[in-house]
Design a protein around this nucleic acid. Structure first.
Lengths: 213, 213
DNA sequence: ACAGCAACCTACCGGACGGTCGGTAAAATA
DNA sequence: TATTTTACCGACCGTCCGGTAGGTTGCTGT
C-alpha cells in the first residue's frame, strides 16, 4: 500500500485546464464557479476533472502559481536585464499591462482571490505577491534617490501602479477602441507623467496650439 | 402615498444592516458570504434578518444603490458646485478616495460584484456606474480642450483613475503608515503629475519596449 | 385590557455543491 | 496476448445554503 503521490498527468492538458478554469473563475468569481462548470467547459464531467485536480482550492492555488510564474518569466525576469532604472520601470508597466490584457494572462489578476485559499496556501501566494511588490517599490526608491521621482510616497505609488494595471482586467476588451499595445502605452504615459500638463507646457500649448507629433 | 410591498422598517436599522453586510461581503466576497454570516454579525438569526431583506440578491442590489447614493451625495454632487475644472478634478479624486478608505464607504467598491445580480438589476447598476464614469470622462475632455491635459486617451485615463481609487480598498488600512487624508493626497499627486519629474521627460523620450505578441 | 404589529426566533425544506467510489474502455506496456 | 495505466464516467453522499412556515415576545396606541 504505497502512499505515492499521483504521478502528474500531461503538462499540456494541465495547462489547458488551468487556462480554461482561470477564465471562468475570472468571469464569475471563485465561489460562484462550480467544479462542474469548469468540467463542462472542458467537455468533461466533474468526476473526470477530479482525475487531474485534487480539490477546488488546490486548483485555485495551482492556477495562481501558474499565473505568478508567467509574471515572473515574462515581466520580472526580463526586466532585471535592463540596467537603466527608468527604462526598467517603463518595461515593467508596459509588459505587465500587456500580460493582463492577454486573455490567458489575465490569470495573474485572480491572484487576489486569496480569501478562498487555506491559510498555508494564502501565505505562500501572499509571499510571492509581496516579492513582486517589493521589487517594484525598490525600483521606485532607486529612482527617488537619483532624483528622478516626484515627491510621492513610494508605497502608495506602487499600489497606484498596480491598481491601474490590475483594473485593466475589468475594462479592457479585445477588439475595443484601443489595442493591447496602445492601452499599455497609455498606462505608461499616465503613470509616469500624470494627467495634467506641467504648467509651462500647458501655457505653451494654449498660446501656440502646438500639435504633438 | 407610496405603496410599498412591505412596510419599510426603520431606515436607521436598514443602513446598519447594509453597512455590516457590505463589510463582510467586501472582505469575503458575495458568494462566500452566507446570509447566516451577515445575520450573526448583526446578532441575529438568518430568519430574523429575512424580516428586513427580501433575498440575498436584493440585499446586494440595495447595498450597491446605497453605495452609489453615497458617491453621488458626497462626491459627485458637491463637485458640481466647483466651477474650475482642475479644482473639480482634484476634489473628485480626493473625496472619492476618502470615501473608499472610510470603512463604511468601502461599500462603493463592491458595486463591481455585478455578476451576482439578476440581469435587470445588473443593468440598473451598470447604468449608474456608467453615469459616474461619463461624468469623469467629460471632465477630462473639458480639460483637454482647454489644453491643460497631457496627450492621453481620456477613456483609458478615466479607467486608470478609477483603478487607482478602487484599488485602495485592497490595501488601505486604518492605522497604517498613511492616514486617509494623506493617502488621498498622494493619489491626487500621482494621478495629476505622474511618478516622474518633468525634467527627466525631456531627457529621455524613447519608445516603449514591449513583449512580443 | 387588549388588539396589532414590528422584531425577532426555532425548525425545517429542497437543492446545489464539493468530493468519492467503483466502474469502463482504450491506449500503452510487457 | 496479457497486464497495467490513463482518462474518463454515472451514481451517490454528506453538508451547507437560500429561503419559508409558523411561532413568540414586547412595545404601542386606544
Amino acid at each position: 500500500m504505497k502512499a505515492q503521490k499521483k504521478s502528474a498527468p500531461s503538462n499540456e492538458r494541465l495547462a489547458e485546464i488551468y487556462r480554461t478554469a482561470a477564465q471562468i473563475i475570472l468571469r464569475k468569481g471563485y465561489d460562484a464557479t462550480s467544479v462542474n462548470d469548469i468540467a463542462n467547459a472542458l467537455g468533461m464531467t466533474k468526476a473526470g476533472l477530479y482525475h487531474y485536480i485534487s480539490g477546488k482550492k488546490e486548483l485555485l492555488f495551482d492556477i495562481m502559481n501558474f499565473g505568478l510564474d508567467e509574471l515572473d518569466e515574462e515581466v520580472a525576469a526580463p526586466a532585471k536585464e535592463i540596467k537603466d532604472a527608468e527604462a526598467r520601470l517603463r518595461f515593467l508597466i508596459a509588459s505587465h499591462a500587456q500580460l493582463v490584457t492577454r486573455g490567458q494572462g489575465a490569470i495573474t489578476i485572480l491572484v487576489d482571490e486569496v480569501t478562498a485559499l487555506t491559510p498555508a496556501q494564502c501565505r505562500k501566494i501572499t509571499q510571492r505577491k509581496r516579492e513582486y511588490f517589493d521589487y517594484l517599490r525598490d525600483l521606485l526608491n532607486e529612482l527617488k534617490s537619483s532624483g528622478k521621482l516626484q515627491d510621492v510616497d513610494t508605497t502608495a505609488a506602487t499600489f497606484c501602479l498596480l491598481g491601474m494595471i490590475n483594473w485593466l482586467s475589468r475594462w479592457f476588451r479585445q477588439g475595443g477602441a484601443l489595442t493591447a499595445e496602445q492601452t499599455a502605452a497609455e498606462i505608461v504615459k499616465i503613470a509616469l507623467h500624470g494627467l495634467l500638463l506641467p504648467e509651462s507646457r500647458a501655457a505653451q500649448k494654449r498660446g501656440l496650439r502646438v500639435v504633438k507629433g
